[in-house]
Nucleic acid binder design. Structure first.
Lengths: 109, 109
DNA sequence: ATCGTACTACGATGATTGTCGTACGATGAG
DNA sequence: CTCATCGTACGACAATCATCGTAGTACGAT
């Protein structure tokens, strides 16, 4: 049999359904200041941002880790555009499942 | 000089001013399920509750720890009534400082 | 004075996790 | 093809923290 290759669109990991996410997981994700910073930036941005666009006070591997946690918590959606990984806040879904949460947690503009 | 005695009203620890509390601290307090359970109970109760009234899935020492964290985070106010320690949610202050936060974090009634 | 109740204080411990460096993989440009 | 860029994966490490048991203190009742 042939070796598996991780190519192209397989690079996009599965995103959890919002219904499978509990408040607990959301809070565990948002309790970290770095992750809250990421979410804030995505909240303000009109369009998805690549990982590199948001500059964070941590190393690259740590940043990857934080994006991973946010994705697993159902807070962001990720897809590739070339070598860049784009990130978008799943705003409507979150607002529907947890009304007022984002507004209460993010710094007021 | 005379020996210091921890008597009577000295048993009540100092409560932090709400202005000195940041969102970070509040979140760190409320990310724990047990602490969120405590806050929920205090939220629903019309009057302050003693520590023993709220039954928690943890040992007594752990419960004490959680009440301590909540107090330090400015979320509850504590005072003694006999041997019982009463707990009250600092609801108005929290709502003023972080509008919508409690409502978003506590289970809807 | 003695006892029981209510809670705290003090370690100890195990699990989690935020952090990093390094090595690797995928993509687009020259 | 080769190279630089962007991000991931993996393993390691230190710090934090939720948990507990035990011992102790304060207060009210007997």
């Amino acid at each position: 049999m042939r070796t598996e290759r991780t190519t192209g669109r397989d690079r996009i990991p599965a995103h959890p359904d919002i219904d499978g996410i509990g408040l607990q997981q959301i809070l565990e994700a948002l309790v970290d200041p770095v992750r809250r910073l990421i979410v804030s930036e995505l909240y303000r941005a009109p369009e998805p941002l690549s990982c590199g666009t948001i500059d964070l006070p941590v190393s690259k591997s740590t940043a990857t880790h934080h994006f991973h946690v946010l994705r697993e918590a159902g807070l962001i959606r990720q897809y590739y555009a070339g070598t860049s990984r784009m990130n978008a806040l799943r705003r409507e879904e979150i607002d529907a499942a947890f009304p007022g949460l984002l507004a209460a947690l993010l710094p007021r503009p």
